[in-house]
């Protein structure tokens, strides 16, 4: 714990709340880092702006830190989520801003934007749900239980790379992109009738 307060609290805050990745310098929220292995990896590798602690801390110290983070600071336990239930909760609470295919963009009218969730880690998503970075509302445990958050995270992880059995998904833009493609189809058809009649003299 001493080591955590010395080395990590500068960015991640004394209780690990961070301010998620929405603000560049502050460290991510650690409330969902319930896997010691993942914390260990982060300490060794130093993802993104985070420094590498490989040469600063001994292995035992790093183990102590990761245990502390995983067992004391992490408040959201991200296991045993229910994919379908997560989908329902996602569509009710999240889809309005982040779109059903988690590509973001719902808030574009007011100048800010709900970020795309593709490529976001489970811990980051869970932390953001609880903490509410930027204009995002907070979902405290009284509103969404840990299990519900875990379910939502499961669903988002699934939809980050959803299967598109029907062909190109057009980046999941929906009917606007489909309309453009439909007109490409119509223009193709017009090209074909031009060929059929070879232009023609009318």
């Amino acid at each position: 714990m001493q080591i955590y307060l010395q080395q990590c609290a500068k960015c991640h805050g004394p209780t690990g709340e961070g301010i998620s990745a929405a603000v560049t310098i502050a460290g991510p929220n650690l409330w969902a880092e319930d896997d010691p292995g993942r914390v260990m990896t982060a300490l060794e590798v130093g993802p993104s702006h985070m420094p590498r602690f490989e040469y600063i801390l001994s292995v035992a110290q790093m183990h102590a830190v990761s245990d502390y983070v995983a067992h004391t600071i992490a408040q959201i336990h991200l296991n045993g989520g229910d994919l379908s239930r997560g989908g329902e909760l996602f569509r009710r609470n999240c889809a309005a801003c982040h779109r059903t295919a988690v590509r973001g963009g719902g808030l574009v009218f007011v100048g800010t934007n709900a970020p795309s969730l593709t490529g976001k880690s489970a811990a980051l998503i869970a932390g953001a749900i609880r903490w509410g970075p930027g204009p995002m509302p907070r979902f405290p445990p009284s509103v969404l239980s840990d299990h519900q958050v875990a379910s939502i995270v499961d669903y988002i992880r699934y939809v980050q790379q959803p299967a598109s059995p029907g062909g190109s998904a057009l980046n999941w833009y929906g009917p606007v992109a489909e309309g453009f493609v439909a007109w490409v189809g119509v223009l193709l058809m017009i090209g074909i009738v031009m060929w059929i009649e070879k232009g023609g003299k009318g």
């Binding site: 889809a95 309005a96 801003c97 719902g106 808030l107 009218f109 007011v110 800010t112 509410g132 930027g134 204009p135 995002m136 509302p137 907070r138």
Partner: peptide
């Protein structure tokens, strides 16, 4: 469906 916490705005 959208609530912006900081702007106190429903959208």
């Amino acid at each position: 469906g959208l609530y912006l916490r900081t702007a106190h705005m429903l959208m």
